[in-house]
Design a protein around this nucleic acid. Structure first.
Length: 256
DNA sequence: ACCTCGTCCTGGTTGC
DNA sequence: TGCAACCAGGACGAGG
């Protein structure tokens, strides 16, 4: 059971008052902890749910993080253990939902889970059909698929050998199959490596993920914009901007 | 209905 | 050396 909740960030629970949200959390008993897309879901016995989004620099810690200037919230359980929320850039959000609100909230924002068996190449093709946006922009849209961000889109497109600016609705059946496998591969590797620690992301015990050591495309250029060689063909990787986001790809083996 | 772009936020790095 | 400008990006709302 949650015996105390303290929220010190005026942004975290916006537009709701953090003091009031903290008061609502006291006494709630945790039923389950789950994930949907990039959202963490804490379900309570009462039927309410706390929806946590870490954005870029948020992390949940199994510690009180005493003295940490970037601690934004602290939960205390009835066995005396703590869960702290740390977020340097304050982009993360906590939203307390009443019974019945969770499913419609997520359904309006998220497409299907790419790691579930129900996500097939055929389903991916249906989601991209008719879309004229750049492939990367379509994949960053959480309603297309849930959970791909800038890193994993670049990685998936590299594995699939597809150019980020490719028009999303023009993929051939073979290209759809390649992309389907590539998305799974990129995400599974990220999970196995426990995420990418580029600066602030940490596991609950404070340790770092190691996915950043597996990058094939994302971030692989120096500060002068000179790309590292592609692991497949040796060509210098290119850096550009797509959908307002930094984008790395191989100009030779990722084709339009 | 689809798509693009600006906004939020902080710390590290770059450039003058 | 100091300081301003820039960069990183997930979700959302405005506008085309």
């Amino acid at each position: 059971m949650l015996v105390d909740a303290e929220i010190d960030d005026s942004r975290l629970t916006r537009p709701f008052d953090p003091v009031e949200v903290a008061a609502e959390l006291r006494g709630e008993r945790v039923d389950s902890v789950d994930r949907r897309g990039k959202y963490l879901i804490v379900r309570f016995d009462s039927g309410r749910a706390l929806l946590i989004h870490l954005r870029m620099t948020g992390s949940l810690r199994a510690s009180a993080l005493v003295g940490d200037p970037h601690r934004r919230a602290l939960l205390t359980m009835d066995d005396g253990t703590h869960v702290a929320y740390k977020d340097v850039r304050r982009f993360g959000t906590w939203l307390l939902l009443e019974p019945g609100e969770l499913d419609p909230y997520l359904a309006a924002r998220l497409g299907e889970e790419p790691l579930l068996p129900t996500f097939t190449a055929k389903r991916l093709g249906e989601r991209l059909a008719g879309r004229r946006a750049p492939l990367k922009a379509a994949l960053l849209d959480q309603r297309t698929l849930a959970g791909l961000g800038n890193i994993y889109v670049d990685e998936a497109l590299w594995y699939a050998r597809l150019q980020p600016l490719r028009e999303a609705g023009t993929l051939s059946p073979d290209e759809i199959r390649r992309l389907h496998r590539a998305i799974r591969k990129a995400l599974e590797l990220g999970v196995a490596r426990q995420g990418s620690t580029l600066s602030d992301y940490r596991l609950p015990d404070g340790s770092s993920g190691s996915m950043q050591r597996e990058f094939r495309a994302y971030g692989r250029s120096d500060r002068n914009g000179v790309g590292e060689p592609c692991d497949r063909c040796g060509t210098e990787l290119s850096k550009t901007r797509v959908g307002g986001r930094s984008t790395w790809y191989c100009p030779r083996c990722q084709t339009l």
